[in-house]
Amino acid sequence: MARRVTPARKATVTAAAWALGLLIFFPILWTILTSFKSEGDAVAIPPKFLFFDWTLENYAVVNQRSDYLLHFWNSVVISFGSTFAGLLIAIPAAWAMAFVPGRKTKDVLMWMLSTKMMPSVGVLVPIYLLFRNTGLLDTRIGLVIILTLIDLPIIVWMLYTYFKEIPGEILEAARMDGAGLRDEIIHVLTPMAVPGIASTLLLNVILAWNEAFWTLNLTAAKAAPLTAFIASYSSPEGLFYAKLSAASTMAIAPILILGWFSQKQLVRGLTFGAVK
């Protein structure tokens, strides 16, 4: 498309896009700005945008409450733990479905996707009771188990679409070259699949980090990840905008950064490969 775009048109488009982009981003920006304000400036009317006394005090306060770090660590363990467990189960399954497709493969894939459509609330009661009776309530391991199960279909699907793109002829070539199944996986499949596995991991960590049904319902003080920790700020008393903002910023910052890296994979991951 080597066609000339008039500068005026380009400027108009740029202005409109930036205005809309900033509008959409504004709540996040505002949260970040507020996290550096004193509590007084945070609720000032008219709002103070950039000219206030910048302070790191809120972060210090939030961090001093040692439970913040605990919840942060819970989020890390739960999101990475469930993702790794999911990958461990899903890699062989996706490998088999992509490279040894049978007549039932499509059906199995669709069925896996359908389990994702079961509303969580439909099984809330038994899971809650099972967890209570087995002592899994408010434990990280319990949440890792649940999140592994709910993310498994997405992980399998994502890996499947990535593996599908590795031409089967290459694996056959390896077989002809004398590679057994083990060599085939180590020397050929894994190096070719690593980028796909990495994006799957990234996306799933993000999804698990932000999961807020099971994490809210199955945890209390001990194993609560950041989703649940932040929710505790919703009670009206003790509400401090600046501290809420600082805690929120810390809760979303890591995932915001990971997310920006994974934009491209995000689309194909969340659409089960239907949009690339």
Binding site: A17, W18, L20, G21, L22, I24, F25, P27, I28, W30, T31, T34, I206, W209, N210, A212, L216, L226, T227, A228, I230, A231, Y233, S234, L239, Y241, L244, S245, S248, A251, I252, I255, L256, L258, G259, W260, Q263, L266
Partner: peptide, 24 residues
């Protein structure tokens, strides 16, 4: 950059976005 600005809200956990909107 605009793309990054637009995509950002998707990465905000539901409890944070709900609280930010509710209070601020």
């Amino acid at each position: 950059i605009v793309r990054i600005l637009v995509i950002a809200p998707f990465f905000v956990m539901p409890t944070v976005s709900a609280l930010v909107w509710k209070n601020m």
